[in-house]
Amino acid sequence: MKIKFSDILRHLFLAFLALIWLIPIVWLVATSFSKYTGMNTSTFFPEEWSLINYKNLLFASDSVTQFPSWFKNTFVIACATCVVSTAFVLMVAYATSCMKFKMRKTLMNIGITLNLFPAVLSMIAVYFILKALDLTNNHLGLILIYSATSGLGYLIAKGFMDTVPESLREAAYLDGASEARVFFTIVIPMSKPIIVYTIISSFLVPWMDFVFATLMLNSGISSNWTVAIGLNNMLDRMLLNQYFTQFCAGGVLISIPISILFLIMQKFYVEGITGGAVKG
């Protein structure tokens, strides 16, 4: 193939965009290797490189940084959340996409309506409900918050299942398969991309949320925290100067597993969607 001028231009433009998108990330990584503890405002790259932040973060926990236990807490919460959430999302998506029943439209409309309320509004009421159940300061409580309501996020999965050819299901019914069988043996295997998408996006929730987490885990015992609360706390105005670079190191450390997940998700998302349902 002949290389055209417009191709070079196109690639240059992409490279330019990628550069813009990556600058803050590069800064994050670079700063995490800085020897200085506070925020460096004079140069982009640190003046002295060092691994000290990672060493402190992982092996020298103090009351401010309990990174290993935060990571463990968040990981456990995230695993539980993603199992429950994925199950819920698929269940709701199948019921609304593939089954016809009386309340279907009504329930979907209620779902849409509920999404219109801001979540911060009912935060305090959720807190008192969990307190009545003795689930505040408890990771189970957080898992409940993150996963119990996940059924509302079914729309994308439903949209995907809508594209699963009806003829496939019809054929199964004719063979005498039950609705549950169709769900497990036909629709689920065909929904791989959307399952991976759901798993990963629900896995990410506990890593990202700090508003609910700070409200729920309010005992002040920092080893109970999630990564989000802990890292956010490091940027407290009193601590910023001592912990900014450790904050960056923490950000890098949690980004690594998440990046890997994202790369997997991307593969499934793109390949799965093209090679999967519609053409099958």
Partner: peptide, 11 residues
């Protein structure tokens, strides 16, 4: 008992 104190004062 439980007690709250500042981050810097913990130790």
């Amino acid at each position: 008992l439980t007690m709250w104190g500042q981050e810097q004062d913990q130790q």
